[in-house]
Write a protein that binds this DNA or RNA. Sequence first.
DNA 1: ACAAAAAAGTTGACGGATCAACCAAACGGT
DNA 2: ACCGTTTGGTTGATCCGTCAACTTTTTTGT
Lengths: 160, 160
Amino acid sequence: MSADQVTDTEFDIPLQQMVTFRLSRIHAKLNAQAARILKETAGISLSQWRIFVMIETHGKITPAQIVKRTDFDKGQVSRTVKGMLKEGLIVVEGSESDQRSHTLEFTDKGHGLFQQARPAMRTRQTALLGSLTANERQVMFTAMDKLELAMEQIEEESRA
Amino acid sequence: MSADQVTDTEFDIPLQQMVTFRLSRIHAKLNAQAARILKETAGISLSQWRIFVMIETHGKITPAQIVKRTDFDKGQVSRTVKGMLKEGLIVVEGSESDQRSHTLEFTDKGHGLFQQARPAMRTRQTALLGSLTANERQVMFTAMDKLELAMEQIEEESRA
DNA sequence: ACAAAAAAGTTGACGGATCAACCAAACGGT
DNA sequence: ACCGTTTGGTTGATCCGTCAACTTTTTTGT
């Protein structure tokens, strides 16, 4: 069934890199494809799309909240937001409780473009997930959780 | 930091992004960690490490072969190789059959640094894979295969 | 209430990845 | 043998992601 099953100890070089390599490649392709679709359908960038998604799902969110939830770099969020303001895709509304911060909101134009990109993005997402069985999806998410956890542990250990 | 679990059926916004988001984040963390380890243990970059791995596994390989096998950008391979030559980590040997090309080889210094980075990298790899069950590993690789395939199909369809 | 620490955002710098243009060598069909 | 095409490699432009420094505001501990 699984001739090339992997035992931990032996598989040296080729596997050595497998996880990182493969993830890296998939990530790159995934990114490139999403970027292309977004550009073609709505003329927006992937970063902008991600901000849009955060606004859509949480409504009136601040940059700091986005950073917390997604681990995006706050510098990049700042720049992306700046660009989106200049293009009129979003507006900011100063927070009353915190003078440093501001919440983000769609403009009509921004929301329009977001809706314009959505079908293609959703189709793609469905196609991607649909290529996996329910079990594969579930196991994959579990595996990703575990990998993130393992990374954190490695990080801690190597600080000893 | 992996609390908000997603069920398969509610395919909407939060999940919408999940695959890309999660892969993106894992990739970023994985990369950053590998880069840190490589810098600390051997003072080399991730790109340089990847070239080393290719030389190690295939011995006397040309840039073009590396590109074929890994999908790395050929421009980046060219620059990385250039840097490694300048630092004396590898040497090139002109190919006899093709005047345009050259094979890459370790120098002693390069091989030394590679060996120096290896234990930590191998430990990390073992820890990462070890955090998954054999089944999870297997399913994950299968899933990655399928995702790459699905991406290609999406690409083809959107060219119609 | 006040100083120290933390948090929100901005900005600059830098390395990595991507894309396109380009040169030179090799190949292939006629 | 020759010309068009393909392949190997280099380089420049550009964009994205990451890190660090800095400003301003808020929170916290005493």
